[in-house]
Write a protein that binds this DNA or RNA. Structure first.
Length: 234
DNA sequence: CTCCCGATAT
DNA sequence: ATATCAGGAG
């Protein structure tokens, strides 16, 4: 046991001092942070985000590079065969569900929304395979409409480590973040947290020693870092 | 809660 | 072998 182990003496977790200091340093570290999915229109972003469930953006971008050439419009996805689309997206995982959702979503975009991606949370949530995370990504990055906070696995994990929440439910975490973080920072901070989560604040082995916001992070001083709460039992 | 599910790092 | 990856539905 390290008797000299320092304890967290930084600003109160969730306080404006801590939140703003974290945002400022993350902006310095990742000035180019943004959505890292490749897309050229709202339909492509919607489909890319549906594919990104439990899959890296890097993998999604490899798949969509071919996919969006083979299926150039929403009509092509709506008319695609289930089996063929499954194989086209296979490497992203969950490919049966994703193919079904992409086809049904595309058909609904055409039958209900004139072939366009709707611009409200309420309408987006009616699309199969679209929940708040995907809806917030599309609204923010395709339309510049921010009505919520993108909470993915990175955002949830870093929020717990910063002491912003003790929840694991993304919807509850989103509600807490919207109270703690100024609205003008919601979309930017989600990107910053994702970049930092990938580069430094890894799920398994966070590199606190080389983290320049460790002095703002209670978890960096914990005996064992805050981990994801695995629901899997083996 | 369970299921969907391939790719990758450790 | 196991955990995790820009989740969502039943």
């Amino acid at each position: 046991m390290n008797l000299a182990a320092p304890i967290y003496t930084g600003p109160t977790p969730g306080s404006p001092e801590q939140v703003n200091a974290i945002i400022a340093e993350l902006r310095r570290l990742y000035p180019q942070a943004k959505c890292s999915l490749d897309f050229s229109n709202p339909v492509e972003l919607l489909i890319a985000t549906q594919l990104s469930a439990q899959c890296t953006d890097e993998r999604v971008n490899i798949v969509t590079a071919k996919l969006f050439k083979k299926y150039p419009s929403v009509n092509d996805f709506a008319e695609a065969s289930q089996e063929e689309l499954e194989q086209d997206i296979r490497s992203t995982g969950f490919y049966r569900n994703k193919a079904k959702n992409i086809r049904a979503t595309s058909q609904r975009l055409i039958s209900v929304y004139g072939g366009k991606v709707p611009r409200t949370m309420e309408d987006l949530l009616t699309l199969p395979g679209v929940a708040r995370k995907t809806a917030n990504v599309v609204l923010g990055n395709a339309f510049g409409i921010v009505v919520g906070f993108v909470v993915d696995t990175h955002v949830g994990r870093l929020s717990r480590r910063f002491g912003w929440t003790t929840n694991t439910d993304p919807v509850k975490i989103e509600q807490e973040l919207m109270l703690i973080v100024p609205k003008q920072d919601w979309l930017d901070l989600s990107h910053l947290l994702i970049f930092h989560g990938r580069a430094i604040c890894d799920a398994r082995k966070p590199l606190c020693e080389q983290c320049t916001i460790a002095h703002l992070c209670p978890s960096a001083f914990a005996a064992t870092p805050v981990r994801n709460t695995s629901t899997k039992i083996h």
